[in-house]
Simulated assay, not measured.
Amino acid sequence: MQVLFKIVRQSQNTGPRIQTYQLDVEPGNTILDCLNRIKWEQDGTLAFRKNCRNTICGSCSMRINGRSALACKENIGAEIARLNQISEQSTETESVSRDREKTENSALNALPGAPPRATAPGAIPEITIAPMGNMPVVKDLVVDMQRFWNNLEAVDPYVSNSARKIPEREFLQTPEERSRLEESGNCILCGACYSECNAVEVNPNFVGPHALAKAYRMVEDDRDDQTESRLQNYNQANSGVWSCTRCFYCNSVCPMGVEPLDKIGKIKDEILERSDDQASRSIRHRKVLIDLVKKGGWVDERKFAVMVVGNFFRDIKGLLSLGPVGFQSIKRGKMPLTFEASEGTKEVRSLIEAVQELESKSSKAPKK
C-alpha cells in the first residue's frame, strides 16, 4: 500500500516546514521502519533518534499524528485504523449536531455531507510525524532533552540506604515489596508524557510527570530512608505535585503503562496524610474541597475561596486579592447568596468516610 509521510522538519536556525515522502509499505511495518527507508532510500539528511527498535530504550519517541508515541511500537495498519476511528467518531458527533440544528430550524432543508474519513476510499493515507513537544528542536525529529534530564535529577531518583550502613550485603525484598514498584519501574524515560504535559507547557518549573513517577518509586521503596525529606521536596508549589493539572495526557500516551498521573496522586496522598490545612494553600485547597463536599454534597462557592485563598480570614492579602473577582461575580449575578445541600449529601458523605477509613487502615498497616 502507498502511504504519504508528512514530516515536520526544521533546524535550530529555521522555522518548521513539512516535507512529504511517499512509500510503498506493508500494514505491519512500523513507523521507524518507514523512517529508516526514507533516510536510506530518499533523503539522507532526515534526522531522528533510534536505538533498540524493540520498545526498550525509548529513543524513538516522537509525535505521530498529534500524539507522542514510540516509532518502533506503532505500525502503519494500526495507525491508519486509529485515524479512521477518530474520523468516524467526529462524523457521528457532527451528525448529531446537524440533526439538532435541523430540528430547531426547519428552514434548513439540506445539510452538507459529513467530513471525509481520515483515509477516504481511493485516497492515499497520510501520516504526519513531528518532534516531541515541550523541548527545543535540534534538527527535524531530534529534540534537546537536557531540561527533561535535569528535572529527573531534581527528584533524586536513587534509593538511599545510608542509614543502614551495611555495605557488605544486598538489601533483599519480598515479591510483594517488589511488586509495588513494577509500574513506576517500567518507565523507559522516552519523554512521551513530558512532551504532552500541559503543566510543563505553561510552567517551566514543573519537573514533569516522568520525574514524579520516578519520585513515587522512591517513596514506595521500603529500602529508602529519605521519605520525609523527599515528600518535602515534592511538595513545592511551583515544581512539585501540586502543579499537575490532571489533564490525563501522560497516562494516555505512556507506552509502558506507568500511569504517571496515578503516581502523582499517590504522592499527594502521602503529603496530605502528614500535613494539616495550614501547611500550604495547595494542601488547604484539597482538604477544604473534601470537607465542603462532605458537608453539603458539593462545593459551597461562598466559602471555598475565602477558606482557601483567605485562609479562614487569616490571610488579609489573600482576602484582598479576591476583591476584584468577587465584585465582578456579584455584579454579574454569579455569586450565590444561599447554599442548598445536594439531595445525595448523605450518600456522598458515607462514600467519603468509607474511602477515608480504608486509606487510614492502609496507611497504618505495616509494609511487609
Rank of each mutant, 00 (worst) to 15 (best):
T20A: 12
A237P: 10
F206H: 00
P175L: 01
E168M: 11
K294I: 03
D43L: 04
G58Y: 08
A279L: 04
S252C: 04
G296Q: 04
N51L: 11
E104V: 03
P260N: 03
S229Q: 15
P136L: 00
L83A: 15
N233A: 15
D24K: 06
V348Y: 03
Y194G: 04
E228R: 12
A123F: 11
R164N: 04
R349H: 05
Y234K: 12
L108G: 02
E74S: 14
V3I: 06
C193F: 09
I38Q: 05
N13K: 10
V293L: 06
G113F: 08
Y216L: 13
V96C: 07
P131G: 03
M62E: 05
K346N: 02
D24G: 06
S162A: 12
S59M: 11
V25F: 07
I166Y: 01
R98A: 11
T14D: 05
S195A: 09
G133R: 03
S229I: 14
Q236T: 12
I271Q: 05
T20M: 06
R63F: 12
G257L: 09
W298L: 08
F339Y: 03
D262F: 02
E79F: 06
S239C: 04
V241K: 09
E41V: 06
T227I: 13
V143K: 00
I18H: 07
E104T: 01
A215V: 08
F148E: 01
R286Y: 11
R223C: 11
E259C: 08
S342F: 02
T119N: 14
F312C: 05
S363R: 15
A199F: 10
F312V: 08
K73R: 15
K346W: 04
G318Q: 14
G326E: 11
E343G: 00
R349Q: 14
R169S: 00
P112V: 10
V142A: 02
P157N: 02
E41Q: 15
R9Q: 03
K331A: 10
K102T: 08
K266V: 02
I264C: 03
I127F: 10
F327R: 10
D156V: 07
C57P: 12
R217D: 01
G191E: 00
V258N: 06
A354S: 14
S97P: 00
D221Q: 09
R63Y: 11
I31W: 05
T345M: 00
I86R: 14
L189N: 10
I129V: 13
G240S: 14
K368Q: 09
L212C: 01
P16Y: 03
Y194A: 12
L261T: 09
P16W: 02
S252N: 12
V299E: 04
L46A: 02
L111N: 07
P204W: 08
E88Q: 15
S160N: 13
Q236G: 12
N203D: 04
K165E: 04
I64S: 13
L351E: 06
P255I: 07
G66L: 14
E273H: 10
T345V: 13
T93G: 00
E270C: 01
